[in-house]
Design a protein around this nucleic acid. Structure first.
Length: 507
RNA sequence: GGCGCGUUCGUCUAGCGGCCUAGGACACCUCCCUCUCAAGGAGGAGACCACGGGUUCGAAUCCCGUACGCGCUACCA
């Protein structure tokens, strides 16, 4: 039914990005839908570059698209980068074909030349809006030769080609995601198909390319919904069979507005990578928006499996099951997913992924205690980018306020006693040559008893003093593990320094 | 202004006429564990299924209005 057929031919989908800047996260969502459907039906996923806008073209933007998809592990089978049976895959390389089709449409009377100046069109639209009329071209040029048209105002020499929409009736189609869609033809605009520079607009190029590349399912963002009737009109005028056309939901901000790059850096796909999200977490997150994966181990109704990869996404994917409403991007959930993947990851793999972030922060991952320290932080990390700040205590002593050495409910004198006790315990353990979490913990517990600290809270105060003295922080991995990793020499040095700081407080 | 689409806990989502006094997840709160921070475990709060009409023995589920939100409204995609 919904995706099996298009004359029984093999499923072919395409992503049609324009190389005009960074890769928008919304495009990535569409790409995932494309890849999932292609995989599910053993079809082909094609990347086609829509570079018909010469003004907005940006060098390098095309490569960003490949990089983003590759980073996420989304695979495509045909594209400008790897060729394929329907080359070329860049629209700028197919110009003659668009011209040919445009001329055919004009010859048939389904399209017409228009010499109206941008100024005239602008005034026209303003007047229409003021008069509360539907905004659409008033067809001044329709049925006129260039000479005839020159007699009227707002003429320019360079013409465009406009699609002639029907005057009556409705254009209806079935969007597998949204159901029956219907538009009243009389209210639709005669859109430009061919620009005065000889380049097609998206509205022409998309139809020609989808047809010639034998695309069976045209999947795109909801923002394209209003232009679908025009595309269908072109298919009809050319006597071509249109693909199934589906419009995916938009990605929104917390305020339910369209995601904007100014206020929301995560509009840019690259942000996720820079921010330390794992590609598998991002893919999982987006997958949650387009597929429901039931929990096999908990087969009650409505219980979902939360962690899954591309295989599960494509297996459970159905166009008709995508919710059509806009999706608010929930970074809290992404953080949680990311943490889940980080915790499940092998330590050396995590070390590899965290490497660039450490290096960028000037921390040497060749340091012998790096792996041990990372192991302690693994279950505490949400984003890879947090690694340098939490791991830096293992690499260097950091400044802290002397007052931090005095826990709440403890006098400076008592804090000093605690620290003095800690120093002698550490000296004792260091002397044995057996400096481990285990050999440290027992004597520290004895110290607590010796200082008459019997409750958990009191022990916490003692350990708190030692924690700050050892790391400069109040929140760290378990104290004795941390001390063991740092080593006797470093700890004794830091404790001695802490003692000096306390002395500075008058104790 | 015109057109179109959308509307189940704050967010994502299950639900596709009776199993729903609406299930799960994130976030939030409490407790347990505990040397801090996490992680983990156990609970909790949170949705009159936008509102109003129908259809039906029966509606979150079907239909129609209304409201609100969003998108489009370029010789950009």
């Amino acid at each position: 039914m919904e995706v099996s057929g298009h004359g029984g031919s093999r499923v072919r989908v395409r992503l049609a990005p324009s190389p005009t800047g960074f890769v928008h996260i919304g495009n990535v969502l569409v790409a995932l839908v494309d890849a999932a459907i292609a995989r599910k039906f053993n079809g082909a996923f094609v990347i086609r570059i829509e570079d018909t806008d010469q003004k907005r073209f940006l060098e390098g933007a095309e490569q960003l698209i490949y990089d983003s998809l590759a980073w996420l592990g989304i695979e495509w089978q045909e594209g400008p980068d790897r060729g394929g049976p329907f080359a070329p895959y860049r629209q700028s390389e197919r110009l003659p074909r668009y011209l040919e089709v445009a001329e055919q449409l004009v010859a048939q009377g389904d399209a017409y030349r228009c010499w109206c100046s941008p100024e005239r069109l602008d005034e026209m639209r303003k007047a229409q809006q003021a008069a509360k009329l539907p905004p659409k071209y008033d067809r001044l040029c329709l049925g006129k030769s260039e000479t005839e048209r020159q007699a009227f105002g707002g003429y320019t020499e360079r013409s465009v080609v406009r699609l002639r929409m029907p005057d009556t009736g409705h254009t209806t189609f079935t969007d597998p995601i949204r159901g029956e869609m219907s538009f009243e033809n009389a209210l639709l605009d005669d859109r430009v198909l061919l620009k005065s520079d000889g380049f097609p607009t998206y509205n022409l190029a998309v139809v020609v390319d989808d047809h010639e590349m034998e695309i069976t399912h045209a999947i795109r963002g909801e923002e394209w919904l209003p232009s679908t009737p025009a595309h269908l009109r072109v298919y009809e005028a050319l006597d071509w069979t249109p693909p199934v056309i589906a419009h995916t939901p938009l990605l929104l901000n917390a305020d339910r507005g369209k995601i904007s790059k100014r206020k929301h850096p995560w509009a840019n796909m690259r942000w996720f990578q820079d921010e330390g999200f794992l590609p598998e977490a991002v893919l999982n997150y987006l997958g949650n928006l387009i597929a429901f994966v039931p929990d096999a181990e908990n087969p009650q109704q409505g219980v979902a499996r939360e962690l899954f990869g591309f295989a599960e996404i494509s297996e459970h994917f159905q166009l008709g099951s995508i919710g059509p409403s806009g999706k608010v991007v929930d970074l809290d959930r992404l953080d949680w997913l990311n943490g889940q993947y980080i915790r499940r990851m092998a330590l050396d793999e995590l070390a590899r992924r965290v490497g660039p972030f450490m290096t960028a922060a000037g921390l040497d991952t060749g340091n012998p205690i790096f792996m041990g320290a990372l192991a302690l932080e693994q279950e505490r990390l949400k984003r890879l980018s947090e690694a340098p700040s939490v791991l830096s205590i293992f690499f260097r002593e950091e400044a802290y306020a002397p007052e931090a050495l005095v826990p709440k409910g403890v006098t400076p004198e008592v804090a000093r006693q605690m620290l003095d006790g800690a120093i002698s315990v550490c000296e004792g353990v260091a002397a044995t040559g057996e400096w481990t979490a285990e050999t440290l913990e027992a004597p520290f517990r004895d110290l607590a008893i010796a200082l008459d600290l019997t409750t958990g809270k009191q022990r916490g105060q003692l350990f708190g003093v030692v924690r700050v003295a050892s790391t400069g922080r109040t929140a760290t991995p378990p104290l004795f593990d941390t001390m063991a990793i740092l080593g006797a020499e470093t700890i004794l040095k830091r404790l001695a320094h802490a003692r000096l700081l306390l002395a500075g407080l008058g104790v």
